[in-house]
Design a protein around this nucleic acid. Sequence first.
DNA 1: TAAAAAAGAACGATCGTTCGTTTTATTATC
DNA 2: GATAATAAAACGAACGATCGTTCTTTTTTA
Lengths: 222, 222
Amino acid sequence: MPKISDEKRAARRAQILAAAWTCFQKEGLHATTMDDIIRTSGLSAGAVYSYYASKDELILAAVTSSLSGLSALVEPILKAEPLPAPDQFVWQVTATIAGFTARGGYDLKRIALLGWSEAQRNERLRATMRGFYLAFRSRLEEVVEAWKRSGVVEEAASVQDTAKALLSIILGFVVQAAILGDVDAGALANGLTGLRTPDTPAQKSAQALRRQSTLKRAVPEL
Amino acid sequence: MPKISDEKRAARRAQILAAAWTCFQKEGLHATTMDDIIRTSGLSAGAVYSYYASKDELILAAVTSSLSGLSALVEPILKAEPLPAPDQFVWQVTATIAGFTARGGYDLKRIALLGWSEAQRNERLRATMRGFYLAFRSRLEEVVEAWKRSGVVEEAASVQDTAKALLSIILGFVVQAAILGDVDAGALANGLTGLRTPDTPAQKSAQALRRQSTLKRAVPEL
DNA sequence: TAAAAAAGAACGATCGTTCGTTTTATTATC
DNA sequence: GATAATAAAACGAACGATCGTTCTTTTTTA
């Protein structure tokens, strides 16, 4: 029975996925044609289609693998003992994300931007992504809990909101680094310390107000 | 000589651009066809093409107008007297961005994500965007300077880095709100205060170290 | 040798764009 | 002031290019 071995099959899939990554980040998700991927992979159309049923499947695989790659990368930081303080933590996470770029010429940040964009019209991709980021934010909540226990975050702080702020900082780094290219993890963490000054009484009362009211603002016409 | 008036011309352009916005955010930049835009604009193909030379032109116009719309929206906050404290400032900016969504069903955040993605392969768009965000960050630097003068940010902080951190938080909010949808300006600002605790001596030394070394980390295989 | 795997030419669908025609609105003429 | 002349503006069918995918043929391998 002439059937290819499981290792060979996995290798072929990886070969095609790598080609897809290369093309996607070079041209974008929609601008890369199947022919681009086929030629880059070194295989034929028939071969590629016998491993991935459609282009959408390939897009999903590319984004999913980048997400799980990110997960694997950041995981060690999340469970480090002792847990680094917030600034240090943000520094480590963003530096790790930035460092991924070096690896084989792939840029995790670019794939992330492409994925976010695509997720808005691709329901399956959106669900996958939502699940991933929600899970990641849960992990961040655990981190905040740990900070509370060790006293670096005060007990009164909202765990959910703090995790949201953390995630914003990390995601924002990805965007800014991808678009402007002149930010690094050190600058971000350093800039964060600049924002971290003790509350004045006026700020305290503003915080209390903030959670109750919704900002009503005149929105100018386009 | 039957020539349309300048107002009529501008109105037609606005009509087409509005149709493009609607389609782009519903289907994405590449998935919307010119026929989509043409039909929702209520005009003919020939008419649309006499106002915008190509689809790329329309994409650029859509993204550019969303950027300048954002600018106009945020500008009042930047020059407010007195300038709100950091948390309050972030709250106002993000609330304004979020509030834009309500306006006519257009979601500024979605267009932003689409634009970032497209900017990676469209050189003209990338240049436009870069210029916009750099200018915006300069404005943020001025804000940080003002904070320093009023004492809410300590003198030793780096203006550039603090502005980068600020921009990250804002951009991250846009991403998180667009993908997860369960964040609001209040949660973000509130979460930021949770991160804002006084330095311990250990953190101080970590900051000093951070700016000098580059993180060397083993990046696992995909 | 037999069946799975790879190849690659070919297909139908769809895209962005064009271009010959029709409509519309302004000006010149009587 | 009604009408004819005129040119911009709008129309929309049609085109060429290109896309994702299929399917028959050839090659490979257990």
